[in-house]
Amino acid sequence: MKHKIEKNTVQETLVIPLYSRKLCTELYPNLFQDETAVRLIDQIDYDFSEVEKNSHSLMQRFGSLEVAMRQYDLAFEVRDYLKDHPNAAVVNLGCGLDGTGRSCDNGSCKIYNLDLPDVIAVRNELLPAGEREENIPCNLNDTEWFSQIDASGGAVFFASGVFYYFLTEQVKALVQKMADAFPGGVLVFDAANRTAVKMIAKTWLKSAKIRDVGAYFAVSDAPKEIGAWDSRLQVSSRGYMLGYNDLKDPSVSRFFRFLARVGDGVMKMQIVRIKFVGR
């Protein structure tokens, strides 16, 4: 039986990024593959007609390319960390129905998927935890979840499209607490500058009743701005559209490559990597 998801519910917010990952897989098969998304879309009872109609627009397709590159980049960073820490904890912060942890599984790491309780309830139905995997219901800002992560073999944390919804002070506090709890660990996530965050905000401002966009997390020069938060943070960043892949694939038009340059350059769309080091 298919899992029914109603319109205008928190659970609906899981469907749109999932559909984007399915669309990415179809449009850019050489760049991105998410068989989990393709399979899950078939298991969900939801009216996709509006999303499917929008999927033919140029900007929606570029948006799908953005999603593809973001997941590609984060998976690259996770696999890179696992090369030197094969038994590490791989922690997906704000996981939704994303299967990146599993796609990076090396056979010995431990996978943790964290999100709000009602999201994890859906995940447990559609993506029940496998071997060496745990789905943890929590609020990321309530750091009690730290105690559930076995970081004895190291830890790599990643967040996809999550911190745009956090106040800058919340991100700073979380990062500093993680530096305390997980020395030697790494956190990777996507970020953008204030201009880009204002554009992103237009899609959720009304529903979230947010007025002061300026308080929400945005960054232009990550090493300088985030590095200043704490001496234990070793910060680097790379453009997330072209920083890991030159996009010289036949499936990507010249126009989209131009937009990718604008995204990385003007909007400072980037993957931020923070290593937690000792003082």
Rank of each mutant, 00 (worst) to 15 (best):
M1H: 02
K2S: 00
I5Y: 00
E6K: 13
E12H: 06
L14P: 00
Y19E: 02
C24E: 11
C24Q: 10
T25D: 15
P29Y: 09
P29F: 07
N30P: 07
N30H: 08
Q33K: 13
E35L: 13
F48H: 04
S49F: 08
E50H: 09
V51S: 14
V51Q: 14
K53M: 14
N54P: 10
S55I: 01
S55W: 06
H56N: 14
S57A: 13
S57F: 07
S57P: 10
R61V: 07
R61S: 11
S64C: 12
S64V: 09
E66M: 15
R70L: 07
D73M: 08
A75T: 12
F76Q: 12
F76Y: 14
Y81F: 15
L82S: 02
D84L: 11
N87H: 14
N92I: 01
G94Y: 02
D98T: 07
G99E: 13
G99V: 08
T100P: 13
G101H: 10
R102E: 11
C104F: 09
N106Y: 08
A121W: 04
R123C: 02
A129I: 02
N135L: 09
I136C: 07
N139P: 13
N141Q: 12
T143H: 09
E144L: 05
A151D: 04
A151L: 03
S152P: 01
A155C: 08
F158L: 09
S160R: 13
S160I: 04
F166R: 02
F166C: 03
L167N: 06
L167T: 10
E169Y: 09
L174T: 00
K177I: 03
M178K: 01
G184C: 10
G185H: 00
V186L: 05
V186S: 00
V186D: 00
F189G: 00
D190W: 03
D190F: 02
A192S: 09
N193V: 03
N193C: 05
R194L: 07
T195R: 15
V197N: 11
V197Q: 11
M199I: 12
I200G: 09
A201Q: 07
A201C: 07
K206G: 15
R211H: 14
D212K: 15
V213H: 05
Y216H: 08
Y216I: 02
F217M: 04
A222I: 02
P223E: 01
E225H: 05
I226P: 04
G227I: 01
D230R: 03
D230H: 07
S231A: 11
S231R: 12
Q234L: 10
Q234P: 08
V235C: 00
V235D: 00
S236I: 02
S237M: 06
S237T: 03
G239D: 04
Y240G: 06
G243Y: 05
N245F: 06
D246K: 04
D246F: 05
D249R: 11
P250D: 13
R254Q: 15
F255A: 14
F255Q: 14
R257A: 11
L259A: 11
A260E: 03
V262N: 15
G263K: 05
D264M: 10
D264Y: 05
M269H: 09
I271P: 00
V272P: 09
I274F: 01
K275F: 00
V277Y: 02
G278A: 14
